[in-house]
Design a protein around this nucleic acid. Sequence first.
DNA 1: AATGTCCGCAACCGCCTGGAT
DNA 2: GATCCAGGCGGTTGCGGACAT
Length: 334
Amino acid sequence: MVRHCFVDKNGMKKGAWSKEEDDKLRAYVLRYGYWNWRLLPKYAGLARCGKSCRLRWMNYLKPGLKRVVISKEEEDLIMELHNQMGNKWSAIAAKLPGRTDNEVKNYWHSHIKKRNTQKTAATKVIVEQTSEIQTLKESEDLMLSPNTANGIACDTTSLDSVTVLQDTIWSETFLPFEPLELFGQLNFGELSSSDFSILSALNWVGDDSVNSSHSAEVLANFWAEPSASITTSSSNETNFSLPSGPLELSGELNFSELSSPDFSILSALNSVGDDSVNSSYSGAEVLANFWAEPSASISTSSSNETNFLLPVEKGGLFSPYISYYDDSMISMFL
DNA sequence: AATGTCCGCAACCGCCTGGAT
DNA sequence: GATCCAGGCGGTTGCGGACAT
């Protein structure tokens, strides 16, 4: 697990730390603090370079560090923060008490990144399967719904034999061709770019150049809704009250992964809102249950990018990230 | 039981940033 | 403004345990 210990040409020890070295460093820092990492090892009686001492202290010896497995809640937070910040490991770690940047970075590379790679691979599988389904549909001369002006929605009967995919996949879900009533209040602490892309697309004036560095005020201007209001609660939450009238859907969204605020937006927009839904739910599941749209259907995209293609006039196409996919789920949509 | 392969994680490396001079 | 340097950061390495063959 640890690197072989050796002494370099300058007489500096490298590699795994011994218990004696840990004890010396801990005792020194707890007593005198770290006033100068370069000089510290000399005074602490360590044959290590300052950087090595700093790293050992920061990542292992510093009081308050959690030495337990990262929880599901922490993982969700890491994913959400990585969505917003990218590889800013120290900034992400700062939001996770007791975790270090190195720990978060290692966790990302060994767990989450790998999972995302599997997701991509699974996408290829579903694309191939969808192609087969499409071929089957065409061969059986199954007619599309009369409402599908762009010819995308499909008949249900040919999908009974779709192979169950237990892996994570990406999909696109067609929403019904009817306007959706807009109700409720959105509660989310921090807006991400995907939130803005959803909201902008829903308001016709789509422009996903707005990103998470913008404040909620931008949203009010963006929507140009005089009745929209913003309040900030005692916590960090921003409450954004949407106008009560229904809005027609239009536009196009591009976002890579749904986060919990996305779900709260979607659920609120559907008036049956329940923002207890979080990112551990699959996107398709949430849509199926919350939007309760019997005419929705599923097709797939070949890229990793999720596309929420809203129709030219009414209704739309939503492509959420979903964590599993089976016959029962398909039936919920069809 | 022996060997090979994979994986997690501690630690290293090199670059960047910002403060001091 | 230029230079130096400590601290900080992200990418990468490599050891050793776990698991597969």
